[in-house]
């Protein structure tokens, strides 16, 4: 692993007695794509919300780029970009205006925001729809805009919470390529997904969470190797072995 950029130590978060995150520690190296996997309700989104300064941990802390969440959340915010699990867009605004608005919010000037917005739309293959209102967009287009907004201001660390859920293979492919391109440019990425084959392909290392705790951590190959021949097993079977077959209805 390269020099650590994100260090989470013993994070805890409860919602009315329910322990959503229960002692989570892990480290993400600079320029790494780190996968956070786990069944529904495992605590992935809660972990990301804590790291993104939206929620305050009951216990534990994390540092991002050397800044502590507890002591300098403001500084942490200057380093991160968040692509939330649920779309977070202004449907009545045009795609470009959504990007420009959030660009201004991360501190870009009007001119910079516009330039970056156009570049990001280009990257997502949506440059020709820049003036279209979000409410007229398809699900896949909205997902790509959701990601494009997270890239505004060139964050050093990107949180991607299930960025590819519910979209067609074309859009998904576009998002994979974008993520790989970002990594090539040195961005650090924390990635959650329910598609094991996707995690296997994209992530340098993955952590498997269940019940608010990390129950396995390593490169995809290491985790597959623990279950048998890494060339023959899939990450999905490792995942099912570790987390069991019972349905998670919370």
């Amino acid at each position: 692993m390269t020099e650590p950029f994100l260090v989470a130590q013993d994070l805890h978060k409860s919602f009315n007695d329910h322990k959503a995150v229960n002692g989570v520690s892990f480290t993400v190296g600079k320029g790494e794509i780190f996968g956070l996997l786990g069944p529904n309700g495992a605590g992935k989104t809660t972990t990301i919300r804590i790291l993104a300064t939206v929620l305050e941990a009951d216990r534990g802390d994390a540092t991002i780029g050397g800044y502590s969440l507890k002591n300098s959340p403001g500084a942490v915010r200057t380093l991160i970009g968040v692509c939330p699990q649920d779309l977070a867009l202004y449907p009545d605004l045009a795609a470009l205006d959504n990007l420009v608005f959030f660009g201004r919010m991360v501190g870009l000037s009007g001119k910079e925001a516009k330039a970056q917005a156009m570049a990001n739309l280009e990257l997502m293959g949506l440059a020709n729809r820049a003036r279209g209102k979000i409410e007229k967009f398809s699900g896949g287009m909205k997902r790509r805009i959701n990601l494009a907004i997270a890239l505004m201001g060139h964050p050093r660390l990107l949180f991607l919470d299930e960025p590819t859920v519910g979209i067609d293979p074309q859009s998904r492919h576009n998002i994979y390529e974008t993520i790989q391109g970002l990594q090539a440019n040195g961005m650090t990425i924390l990635y959650t997904t329910h598609y094991m084959e996707e995690a296997d392909r994209l992530c340098d290392r993955v952590a498997i969470m269940d019940g608010g705790q990390i129950i396995a951590l390593g490169t995809p190959r290491e985790l597959k190797g623990q279950a048998g021949d890494p060339d023959k097993t899939t990450l999905e079977s490792v995942f099912l072995n570790l987390t069991g077959h019972s349905l998670r209805d919370d």
Binding site: V82, P84, M105, G107
Partner: peptide, 14 residues
């Protein structure tokens, strides 16, 4: 409800 509030609070907007 739209989720933009949460998103705003991960930016530099206080």
């Amino acid at each position: 409800r739209k989720g933009t509030l949460e998103r705003l609070l991960t930016t530099r907007l206080s």
